[in-house]
């Protein structure tokens, strides 16, 4: 059967739009917006001056032998202890559950308990109800110099 080159070219061009059916999305990121309301508290009589560093983390990430807790999502700085309301974008493909960890930067050096400085307080709470767009949490900062890892039991 004789086929003309024009027909061949026309067929090729006609089929070109079918190529995207193979997919064109590379990174496909899903973010879930959460507005977190709550309060950062310190023990009665404890130090309360200084900025608060608030970290949002996934409770669980990974699978099987590579599963681990407390994958960090983001860190923000609050003006101080007390009530707060902040909006976060949570990457839902990277883990499950939410944990909020905070510590009070008493000396303003941006470091939790740097060598040679006085103790600073930290606290952690699992945020119940995720996924939901509005969540609440209260964190009591009562553990001196504690990293998130030692305060969380998976």
């Amino acid at each position: 059967m004789k086929r003309s080159p024009r027909a061949a070219l026309a067929l090729a061009l006609a089929l070109l739009p079918a190529l995207p059916l193979g997919g064109c999305v590379n990174d496909d990121v899903h973010l879930y917006e959460v507005t977190l309301r709550g309060e950062i508290q310190v023990p009665r009589g404890g130090p309360y001056s200084g900025h608060v560093h608030l970290e949002l983390r996934h409770a669980r990430s990974g699978e099987g032998g590579l599963a681990y807790p407390l994958r960090r999502i983001t860190t923000i700085e609050l003006d101080g202890v007390g009530p707060f309301e902040e909006t976060f974008l949570v990457p839902t493909d990277e883990g499950e559950g939410l944990v909020a960890y905070a510590w009070l930067d008493r000396d303003g050096d941006g470091l939790l308990c740097a060598p040679g400085t006085s103790d600073e307080l930290a606290g952690l709470r699992e945020v119940d109800g995720f996924p939901a767009h509005a969540l609440e949490v209260t964190i009591l900062l009562e553990h001196p110099c504690a990293g998130a890892e030692i305060l969380y039991a998976p």
């Binding site: 407390l70 308990c113 060598p115 110099c145 504690a146 990293g147 890892e149 030692i150």
Partner: peptide, 9 residues
């Protein structure tokens, strides 16, 4: 491994 160098725990 995500644990503090100075944590006595």
């Amino acid at each position: 491994m995500h644990f503090r160098m100075d944590d006595p725990s």
